[in-house]
Protein backbone atom coordinates (compact mmCIF):
# COMPACT_ATOMS: atom_id res chain seq x y z
CA UNK A 1 0.00 0.00 0.00
CA UNK A 2 1.52 3.25 -1.06
CA UNK A 3 1.24 6.49 0.85
CA UNK A 4 -0.88 7.98 -1.92
CA UNK A 5 -3.65 5.41 -1.47
CA UNK A 6 -4.06 6.08 2.25
CA UNK A 7 -7.51 7.53 1.67
CA UNK A 8 -8.82 4.11 0.64
CA UNK A 9 -8.00 2.48 3.94
CA UNK A 10 -10.27 2.38 6.99
CA UNK A 11 -7.35 2.40 9.43
CA UNK A 12 -6.18 5.84 8.28
CA UNK A 13 -9.45 7.42 9.35
CA UNK A 14 -9.62 5.49 12.62
CA UNK A 15 -6.09 6.53 13.54
CA UNK A 16 -6.81 10.15 12.65
CA UNK A 17 -9.94 10.06 14.81
CA UNK A 18 -7.96 8.53 17.69
CA UNK A 19 -5.34 11.28 17.41
CA UNK A 20 -8.00 14.01 17.41
CA UNK A 21 -9.69 12.36 20.38
CA UNK A 22 -6.39 12.30 22.25
CA UNK A 23 -5.85 15.99 21.50
CA UNK A 24 -9.31 16.70 22.87
CA UNK A 25 -8.60 14.77 26.06
CA UNK A 26 -5.27 16.59 26.45
CA UNK A 27 -6.97 19.95 25.97
CA UNK A 28 -9.72 19.10 28.44
CA UNK A 29 -7.17 18.18 31.08
CA UNK A 30 -4.67 20.99 30.61
CA UNK A 31 -6.86 23.98 29.71
CA UNK A 32 -7.56 26.31 32.57
CA UNK A 33 -10.34 28.37 31.02
CA UNK A 34 -13.89 27.26 30.33
CA UNK A 35 -13.75 28.37 26.68
CA UNK A 36 -10.57 26.37 26.13
CA UNK A 37 -12.22 23.26 27.53
CA UNK A 38 -15.18 23.84 25.20
CA UNK A 39 -12.82 24.01 22.22
CA UNK A 40 -11.24 20.73 23.28
CA UNK A 41 -14.65 19.09 23.60
CA UNK A 42 -15.44 20.15 20.03
CA UNK A 43 -12.33 18.21 18.96
CA UNK A 44 -13.68 15.11 20.71
CA UNK A 45 -17.05 15.45 18.97
CA UNK A 46 -15.37 15.80 15.59
CA UNK A 47 -13.28 12.70 16.26
CA UNK A 48 -16.39 10.66 16.95
CA UNK A 49 -18.01 12.01 13.79
CA UNK A 50 -15.00 10.93 11.74
CA UNK A 51 -15.28 7.45 13.21
CA UNK A 52 -18.94 7.23 12.26
CA UNK A 53 -18.24 8.45 8.74
CA UNK A 54 -15.32 6.03 8.28
CA UNK A 55 -17.36 2.99 9.27
CA UNK A 56 -20.21 4.33 7.19
CA UNK A 57 -17.98 4.50 4.12
CA UNK A 58 -16.14 1.20 4.51
CA UNK A 59 -18.23 -1.35 6.36
CA UNK A 60 -21.87 -0.34 6.76
CA UNK A 61 -24.36 -1.75 4.25
CA UNK A 62 -26.47 1.42 4.12
CA UNK A 63 -24.21 4.47 3.67
CA UNK A 64 -26.94 6.97 4.55
CA UNK A 65 -27.22 5.97 8.23
CA UNK A 66 -23.78 7.20 9.24
CA UNK A 67 -24.26 10.49 7.40
CA UNK A 68 -27.58 11.10 9.15
CA UNK A 69 -26.06 10.24 12.52
CA UNK A 70 -23.16 12.60 11.89
CA UNK A 71 -25.67 15.30 10.99
CA UNK A 72 -27.36 14.74 14.36
CA UNK A 73 -23.98 14.91 16.11
CA UNK A 74 -23.40 18.29 14.43
CA UNK A 75 -26.77 19.57 15.65
CA UNK A 76 -26.08 18.39 19.19
CA UNK A 77 -22.60 19.95 19.04
CA UNK A 78 -24.09 23.27 17.99
CA UNK A 79 -26.59 23.13 20.86
CA UNK A 80 -23.84 22.17 23.28
CA UNK A 81 -21.64 25.04 22.13
CA UNK A 82 -24.49 27.55 22.48
CA UNK A 83 -25.43 26.45 26.00
CA UNK A 84 -21.82 26.08 27.14
CA UNK A 85 -20.90 29.54 25.93
CA UNK A 86 -23.95 31.14 27.52
CA UNK A 87 -23.04 29.46 30.80
CA UNK A 88 -19.51 30.79 30.35
CA UNK A 89 -20.85 34.30 29.86
CA UNK A 90 -23.09 33.97 32.93
CA UNK A 91 -20.11 32.73 35.00
CA UNK A 92 -17.99 35.61 33.73
CA UNK A 93 -20.68 38.09 34.73
CA UNK A 94 -20.84 36.71 38.27
CA UNK A 95 -17.17 35.97 38.94
CA UNK A 96 -15.40 38.33 36.51
CA UNK A 97 -13.33 35.35 35.46
CA UNK A 98 -13.58 32.28 33.26
CA UNK A 99 -10.77 30.48 35.04
CA UNK A 100 -11.80 27.07 36.29
CA UNK A 101 -9.90 27.61 39.56
CA UNK A 102 -11.92 30.71 40.46
CA UNK A 103 -15.32 29.05 40.15
CA UNK A 104 -15.05 26.94 43.31
CA UNK A 105 -17.97 28.14 45.44
CA UNK A 106 -19.39 24.63 45.71
CA UNK A 107 -16.06 23.07 46.61
CA UNK A 108 -16.77 23.16 50.36
Amino acid sequence: MSILTLHNSLNTYLILAAILFGMGIYGLITRRTLVGMLIASELILVASSINFMAFNRFTAPDPTVGQIFTLFIMAIAAAEAAIGLSITIAVYRNYKSVDTEDVVDLKG
Binding site: V35, A81, L85, I89, Y92, S97, V98
Partner: peptide
Protein backbone atom coordinates in the same frame (compact mmCIF):
# COMPACT_ATOMS: atom_id res chain seq x y z
CA UNK B 1 -19.93 31.62 18.48
CA UNK B 2 -16.78 30.67 20.38
CA UNK B 3 -15.00 33.73 18.99
CA UNK B 4 -17.87 35.92 20.22
CA UNK B 5 -17.70 34.29 23.65
CA UNK B 6 -13.97 34.96 23.82
CA UNK B 7 -14.53 38.59 22.99
CA UNK B 8 -17.37 38.91 25.50
CA UNK B 9 -16.07 36.90 28.40
CA UNK B 10 -12.30 36.95 28.54
CA UNK B 11 -10.53 39.42 30.82
Amino acid sequence: TIAFAIMLATP
